[in-house]
C-alpha cells in the first residue's frame, strides 16, 4: 500500500472541494486506480471528468509533471494532477 497526491485545478478543485487529495493505492496500482480512489472521496467529480466510461477529452492527466494515461503504473509518493484545458483566449 502506498499513497499518491492528487493536485486539482480550476473548476475540478471546486467540484472536489479541495486542491490536494492524498489517496492510497496498491503497490501495483495504476493512475486509473488512483482516479477511483479520488472519486471515492470526492462526490460529484465523476460526472465532471467522465464522458461515458472514459475520461473526458477536456481533462488532462499528469504524473510527476508529464502527461499520463490511466493504464500507467504509479509509485508511492507520486504527484498526480488533473486539470481542464489550459487557458486559451484568442
Amino acid at each position: 500500500m502506498g499513497t499518491v497526491t492528487w493536485r486539482l485545478f480550476a473548476d475540478l478543485a471546486e467540484v472536489a472541494e479541495g486542491r490536494e487529495h492524498t489517496v492510497s493505492v496498491d503497490p501495483d496500482g495504476t493512475v486509473g486506480d488512483a482516479i477511483d480512489a479520488l472519486l471515492a472521496e470526492s462526490t460529484g467529480l465523476r460526472e465532471r471528468i467522465f464522458d461515458g466510461d472514459t475520461i473526458a477529452d477536456d481533462v488532462n492527466l499528469m504524473r510527476n509533471g508529464s502527461p499520463a494515461d490511466p493504464t500507467e503504473s504509479v509509485a508511492d509518493g507520486d504527484e498526480l494532477a488533473m486539470f481542464p484545458p489550459v487557458t486559451g483566449g484568442r
Binding site: 480550476a10 473548476d11 494532477a81 486539470f83
Partner: peptide, 24 residues
C-alpha cells in the same frame, strides 16, 4: 504559452464569474 502552460483563468464580470475554459 497559451497551449502548453498549465495556467487557468477565472473571469469576474459585472454579471457573473466563471472559468474561461468552460466558455470556449
Amino acid at each position: 504559452l497559451k497551449d502548453e502552460v498549465p495556467i487557468f483563468k477565472r473571469e469576474t464580470t459585472v454579471e457573473e464569474d466563471f472559468w474561461v475554459h468552460d466558455r470556449e
